Simulated assay, not measured.
Amino acid sequence: MFEEIYSPVQQIHIHPFSNLFVKRDDLIDPYISGNKWRKLKYILQKAKAASKTHLVTFGGAYSNHLVATAAAAARSGFKATAFVRGEAVKNEMLLICSLYGMELIFADRESYRNKAELYKKYFELNSETYFIDEGGASADAVIGCSEIINELTETYDHIFVAAGTGTTAAGLLKGIQEAGLNTKLHVIPVLKGGNFIADEIAAYTEISNHLILHIDYHFGGYAKTTPELLQFIKNFVKGTGILIDPVYTAKMFYAITNLAKQNQITPTDKILAVHTGGLLGLLGMKDKLLLP
């Protein structure tokens, strides 16, 4: 269903770093991208083992998770349905979901808050369905993300990752702990009030002094940007040839460069940034990014 794939590590050269590397999970797949591939890997195996035929999940109108689930379902022989948060809309992301055969059910924001109740309302009597939480958050997803550490052939002083739900960060921390590494894990929440990410991580693995949370790089909140961040994206992509998205990875790379300016990390330290993919998020920002 999901053959073993190991993404490459690439060194990049941006001032002032001499040892900055990127784990290119964005190259795993264009639609089941990055950490989405890792999160779904064991979830789909469990669904198949349980003889389920229909995946049911949740996300916003520009959710990379929905696209990934739709693509994974189509390739693996599952039917798929998504509850989409908010009013009915048409966009490029949902077009891809629909082309992969995913049924879309738009749910008002109040109803969406209770995902278990939504699932029960539509699918309580359907024994063929398999519940997948928003973003794929689960213990199985944490295991999939922990395998990033197993794939590394070198050790790093610091590993950086952007975080929305904390699942990928929990997997990385778990992998660091199990490997007995001294690496510091720097987590960049992309939402306001990102301290809650620590609680999300703690639900899956023990919090340790390996973990450092940087909560001031949300740029206004989830999927929010500023002219400074948009300019950073343009300069970074032009200078490295690596696409980054404004929702997650741009905020992470901005944080890395800013922390170096503040002398919170040393540019000569060996640093790994995990590129979690999600590049279709650029589509939601096309009007802003096309401005001069």
Rank of each mutant, 00 (worst) to 15 (best):
I201F: 00
N19P: 00
K79E: 08
K184W: 05
A61C: 12
D216K: 08
K115R: 13
L66D: 10
A116I: 11
S146K: 06
L272I: 03
L27K: 10
C97M: 01
I233C: 03
V274G: 09
A70M: 02
T168S: 15
L185V: 12
G86C: 01
Q264A: 14
I176H: 12
H214W: 08
T225L: 01
Q11V: 03
N235Y: 09
K41E: 13
H54Q: 12
L279H: 04
E134G: 10
V237S: 09
L66M: 10
N195H: 14
K121A: 14
N91I: 08
H15R: 13
S138G: 11
G281Y: 01
L243P: 11
A163D: 05
T205F: 03
N114K: 09
A73Q: 12
Y42R: 00
A198P: 04
D133K: 07
M102K: 09
G284V: 10
N114Q: 06
T155C: 00
P30E: 05
N35T: 03
K121C: 10
S111H: 13
V142F: 05
S18Q: 14
Y42I: 05
F196I: 15
I265G: 07
Y62D: 01
R24C: 10
I233F: 05
Y130W: 05
A139Y: 10
I159F: 06
I244P: 09
D157I: 05
K48N: 12
V142C: 00
P16A: 01
N19F: 03
I188F: 10
I201K: 05
I212Y: 11
N91P: 13
S127M: 03
A70I: 02
K39L: 01
E128I: 02
F106K: 02
I256S: 02
G166C: 10
K224M: 06
H158A: 14
N209D: 07
D287T: 14
E128D: 15
Y156G: 06
W37R: 04
D108G: 03
V161W: 02
L291S: 15
C145L: 09
Y100Q: 01
D216P: 00
E4W: 11
S51Y: 12
I96M: 11
T57C: 05
K115A: 11
A223E: 02
V237P: 00
K261R: 15
K251Y: 04
F58S: 05
K286W: 09
L280F: 07
G77I: 07
Y156K: 00
